[in-house]
Design a protein around this nucleic acid. Structure first.
Length: 548
RNA sequence: GUCCCCAUCGUCUAGCCUGGUCCAGGACGACGGCCUUUCACGCCGUUAACAGGGGUUCAAAUCCCCUUGGGGACGCCA
């Protein structure tokens, strides 16, 4: 039954668990022919040092529910329940973008929701395009999102010897061969196939030549020529391809560097990865990787491919759609929990729930509810979530965040950035700001001294009419005499009493007073604002407004 | 070109596996209203979708087939 297998190939369809299991951990020393198991950190026999050491793991806990749904046949019934291990494997060729962040989040959730482990591996085998800056940027973004990985980060560039020793293994087992075809020759083959209306691929002409190593030669995988390779994708369901569609992929480049497919398989096996969640663009690689697992005799992990994220025009999200980098969203004033909530909800759901604090995500996440069609990134909804989390946040936290945004927006010299003062302002802005950038902007008038307050010309002209000024002038002594600047209701009551005595409506002073206090026609509540400003500052502003 | 995948309101989605409870539910947005000292918040309401066509069935958003549309892959990139 389809739903119960993890992977299979035909005609030798899914040869049952025992074989795979026997070949599973512990990993042998990669220095073939040495096949001893690793000791603490080095091979007991040949002394090779183990390149990556997993942190001490407690005895395998039993996962809450179904730890590896549909994969039980891989393990004999006597096996202890497994710990889910996932990983995020970005290649450091740029910043962490929204799509990558989402797959990282899903991988993290998959592991963490089941008490498993989430690992990080940097796929920097391409020396040309990988940079340290990109690595740092990705790590920074992961940290900002709170997606912390267990153990040390694995860098593929430091493990070339490991990959090569495994390539040797494949060569020795007859699952790989040396190929002397030049890139040009291969390109010609592809061109020919394309012209013939067939799938462009390497024709395998060196497959049976029995070549050895040599300058310019690569090592290719000797894949099956017929049959089918399939797997049960965690998000897409059963998926399969004809092996004839696959060509003999290169495992080792002519410069000795391993290729992606080989390195991924070696590393995922070495790191004990049980579940691989990655972008849609990797589906086509999966059968190739499964074939590699089989050739090595390793346990095949469970795979899941999440669809990509589209821009508003339904085209693949790209730079012209604006911010792509996760850190760009931080700059725009979004809270990490808002982005996480938004990303989680983009392609995943739990009934009608929209608001997902981290704890809910950890409690509710499962791959069954991952959607399989691509989704469009909607900034409006992110804004709404951000506004929600701004309201939920503590004033102290937001107050601490604010100076950074104030600085981004302009000069901060002369601004009152006292944390306590800021924390007093924030509650007035929480229901109004959708982003921290907006909040910083709205907070500005609170922070400058009366003599430096910027007044909006139009507001002054329209609101500070001669009679409005007379009213403010009469009100001033009342505010100067008032002691209760901790209680905005009391200030309001004094104002109301003043108006009642003159039989005036509140509207008569509201906007003039607002302009005098804030320089603008839109602001938080008048008396709350006065309380935050304090008596001296409030009165100084009214005085200044009177002489504008 | 070849292979693979996807398809419910403008957007994110529930429902689809286990057909009837769905003249399709929620949310964002938009629009209108209420509240109100401004701006917001909040509250109430309106708008709007099963891509098309064939089957199967008493009954289909749900199962099957085809078409169309979209996407991905086909690298000595990852």
């Amino acid at each position: 039954m389809a739903a119960t297998w993890s992977w299979w190939t035909s005609p030798t369809r899914a040869s049952s668990g025992s074989a795979s299991r026997a070949a599973a951990k512990p990993a042998p020393c990669p220095s073939r022919p040495c096949a001893t198991a690793w000791s603490a950190s080095s091979c007991a026999r040949c002394g090779a040092s183990r390149p990556w050491k997993r942190p001490e793991r407690p005895a395998r806990r039993s996962a809450p529910s179904e730890p590896w749904p549909g994969a039980l046949h891989i393990y004999s019934s006597g096996d202890p329940p497994m710990t889910i291990v996932t990983r995020f494997a970005p290649s450091p060729t740029g910043y962490l973008h929204i799509g990558g962040a989402r797959t990282a989040l899903f991988s993290w959730l998959l592991a963490k929701s089941q008490g498993g482990e989430f690992l990080l591996r940097v796929e920097d085998t391409d020396r040309e395009r990988s940079t340290q800056e990109a690595t740092d940027a990705i790590l920074e973004a992961m940290e900002w999102l709170g997606l912390t990985a267990e153990g040390e980060t694995v860098f593929q560039s430091q493990r070339f010897h490991l990959y090569n020793s495994y390539i040797d293994t494949l060569l020795a087992k007859g699952h790989a061969y040396w190929c002397q075809c030049t890139p040009e020759e291969v390109e010609a083959m592809r061109e020919q196939a394309r012209a013939a209306g067939k799938k462009p691929k390497y024709d395998g002409r060196c497959r049976e030549l029995g070549l050895g190593p040599g300058a310019g030669r690569v090592v290719r995988f000797k894949g099956p020529l017929d049959g089918v390779t399939g797997f049960d994708d965690m998000v897409k369901g059963p998926t399969s391809v004809q092996n004839a569609e696959l060509d003999d992929m290169i495992l080792r480049r002519s410069d000795g560097a391993p290729t992606y497919n080989l390195a991924v398989v070696v590393d995922d096996n070495d790191m004990d990865v049980t579940h691989v969640l990655r972008g849609d663009d990797h589906v086509a690689n999966t059968p190739r990787q499964i074939l590699l697992y089989k050739a090595f005799g390793w346990r095949v992990p469970k795979f899941g491919h999440v669809p990509m994220i589209l821009g508003p025009d339904k085209a693949k999200l790209s730079k012209r759609h604006g911010a792509l980098s996760v850190m760009e969203y931080k700059k725009m004033g979004y809270l990490p929990e808002a982005l996480v909530n938004y990303l989680a909800r983009l392609g995943w759901s739990h009934g009608d729930q929209e608001i997902f604090p981290r704890e809910d995500l950890l409690r509710l996440f499962n791959t069954n509810n991952l959607g399989k069609s691509p989704s469009v990134f909607d900034l409006k909804k992110l804004e709404w979530l951000n506004a929600h989390y701004i309201k939920e946040s503590t004033p102290e936290r937001l107050a601490a965040l604010l100076p950074e945004y104030l600085a981004d927006a302009g000069e901060t010299a002369g601004l009152n950035l006292d944390p306590g003062y800021l924390a007093g302002i924030v509650p007035l802005l929480q229901p109004r700001a959708k982003t921290l950038v907006e909040m910083a902007d709205m907070a500005r008038f609170f922070l400058v001294p009366a003599n430096a307050l910027a007044y909006d010309d139009k507001a002054v002209a329209e609101q500070l009419t001669p009679e409005a000024r007379r009213l403010l002038a009469d009100l001033l002594p009342i505010y100067e005499a008032a002691q209760d600047y901790r209680d905005h209701k009391a200030l309001e009551a004094r104002t109301q009493a003043f108006l009642d005595a003159r039989e005036l409506k509140f509207k008569a002073v509201a906007q003039p007073l607002r302009v005098a206090l804030t320089g603008k026609t839109a602001s938080p509540g008048l008396f709350e604002t006065m309380c935050v400003l304090g008596r001296d500052e409030s009165c100084a502003r009214i005085k200044r407004a009177l002489v504008l």
